[in-house]
Amino acid sequence: MSTAVARRSTLPGFGLTMGLTLTWLSVIILIPLAGLFLKTFELSLDQFWGIITSRRTLNALKISFGLSFAAACVNLVMGTIIVWALVRYRFPGRRLFDAIVDIPFALPTAVAGVALTQLFAQKGWLGAPLAELGIKVAFTPIGIFIAMVFIGIPFVVRTVQPVLIDLDPEIEEAAASLGANRWHTVFRVILPSLIPALLTGFALAFARAIGEYGSVIFIAGNLPNVSEIAPLLIVIRLSEFRYADATAIAVVMLLASFLIIFLINRLQRWAQTRIPAH
């Protein structure tokens, strides 16, 4: 008998499953993404900078990021209101509306795109009355904004909802017993404890809207410099076989979404240290 014992684990299959996991991950995710960055390195810094700062690219990025931000803000406010209604109040159809929140997740983006366009087109159910007020939605930046609001709402609701449900009722009772009125209790006690969830929901909605393609392009109008989003510009550059341009825009967007994931993870850490798990 030897004294040195090989390390073994109880459950079998670690080597095999880990090997397969890494192989599959590399083939499907890592190598293709690495290819994207590799392609970027074929450009000189000047070329890269030239593509990114060209008027059309810059405008597309501005439109994507700006409208996404605006839509995420609306989602933040409306999402909070919806969560509050769903969690705190009883009203007919509450469970149905709770389920409805998931529709933007579940509906294929192309379907959402054509439906929203039809709805807000000049002769559409909502487009017609709005046109009479002199507001044109479809084929304008407002249309892009509306589509982004549609796609982002579940992110805020589903992030904040479980936190509000789990909120200890005693903290509200404690606040009330210490003489706080309802206004103080809501704005000084409840909302502050929801902040990490609210910010996370906001960031998720923002990130999703930046990358969104299907539900936006139908209603967008896609006028260069006015209503052309960055993902669409990538597709256009590809169809023109301007791979370098497409790649450069993609890298900028990808880095932005990595930054957002990073921020979300930091937010989560913060939330966990701030609100101890019970």
Partner: peptide, 21 residues
């Protein structure tokens, strides 16, 4: 056999158990 020692011997009924899972 649910954990493995870094070193040492385990014998069950006189036979080395560490060669078996």
């Amino acid at each position: 056999g649910l954990d493995w020692p870094d070193s040492g011997e385990v014998a069950i009924d006189g036979e080395n158990a560490l060669t078996r899972g």
